[in-house]
Computed example of a mutant assay.
Amino acid sequence: MNAFSLPAPAKLNLMLRILGRRADGYHELQTIFQLLDFGDTLTFEATTDGHIHLQCPGVDVPPQQNLIYRAAQLLRQHCGNREQGARITVDKILPAGGGIGGGSSDAATALLGLNHLWQCRLDLDKLAELGAQLGADVPVFVRGHSAFAEGVGERLTPVSIAPQWYLVLTPACHVSTAALFSDPRLTRDSAAITLAALRDRRLNTHWLNQYAGNDFQSLVESLYPEVHAARSWLAHYGQAYLTGTGACVFAGFASEEAAQKVFAERPEGWQGFIAKGVDDSPTHRQLAKFAATV
């Protein structure tokens, strides 16, 4: 297969707790990653010139600093064939700095897609290990399953999450993750959730409501009025939370129709989307279809 496309799905953090700061400066976290059936699309085409050609319209970052490009270079370096090249085109719809994993998911899809294109035959363990060098959220997208995460986000336990439709609002601001982690006002002493509380790794809406919350939420809302306004408005229709380190906020609904009804009422000019939560990544589903046709 010389050219093909793969989705790069968004994620939500249905719960995010900061347990403390480690000696190395990183933070111990616990979070629930919920994958969505909505995201960017990456198209891959093999080249023989030994170069990585990246086209990502709308992203104001030099290609060499883009996580997709860095993922491609990392994989090629590991596989040891510098003559292989690729042309990668990105249909970018996920906002940067939104806390929905756009850059991390793109990097993971790049690793998965190029592993297939270049026939590197690396397993998910090795690809996740490479992905961790690019960012803490990359491994969950590489492994392709909603998960309970610990450590800095690298220790993953797959979970099954009760299906919901999510309304996600995307305020027009870019939240700096580094600035939040260094802010002295950030809460860093939340109680840990034990694996026993995961109830055989099946999380129903009662469990999610019991443990929901995001330790970044109050800080982000104090720094970014747009986030506070979006979440406060959405809270009139359901339990609304910040995802990741922001800026996006979300609420879950039992049906697409219910989510669409609320979305239609949003203030003029507000952006967002509606997506279904999924346990298995659409990236992996598409790769499985490719494998079935071989």
Rank of each mutant, 00 (worst) to 15 (best):
G85T: 11
A110S: 09
C79S: 15
D125N: 14
H116I: 10
G97V: 11
I100M: 10
A107N: 03
L117M: 12
A110E: 09
A96P: 10
F148M: 10
G151V: 07
Q84V: 04
V90K: 12
D125M: 12
A108T: 00
G103T: 03
A107W: 01
L134V: 07
A136H: 01
A136R: 04
I88N: 08
G99I: 05
V138Y: 01
G99R: 03
G97F: 08
R143Q: 15
I88Q: 05
E83W: 12
A107R: 01
G144T: 07
L124T: 12
E129I: 03
T109R: 01
A86V: 11
D91N: 14
A136E: 00
C120P: 03
A107I: 07
S104P: 02
L134I: 10
G135P: 00
A136K: 02
P95M: 10
A128C: 09
L134Q: 09
A136V: 05
D123H: 10
A147D: 08
L111V: 11
N81I: 06
F148A: 06
G99M: 09
H78S: 13
C120L: 11
L94H: 04
A107S: 10
S146R: 03
L111W: 07
E129M: 08
L122R: 04
L127Y: 05
L111C: 10
G98C: 13
I88H: 01
P95L: 06
A149P: 00
G80W: 03
A108M: 02
R87D: 13
L122P: 06
L122G: 07
D106N: 11
N115K: 11
D91A: 15
G103D: 05
L114P: 07
S105C: 06
A128N: 06
H78P: 07
L127Q: 05
G151L: 12
L124C: 09
K92G: 04
V138R: 00
A132H: 06
L134P: 02
A147F: 08
V142N: 02
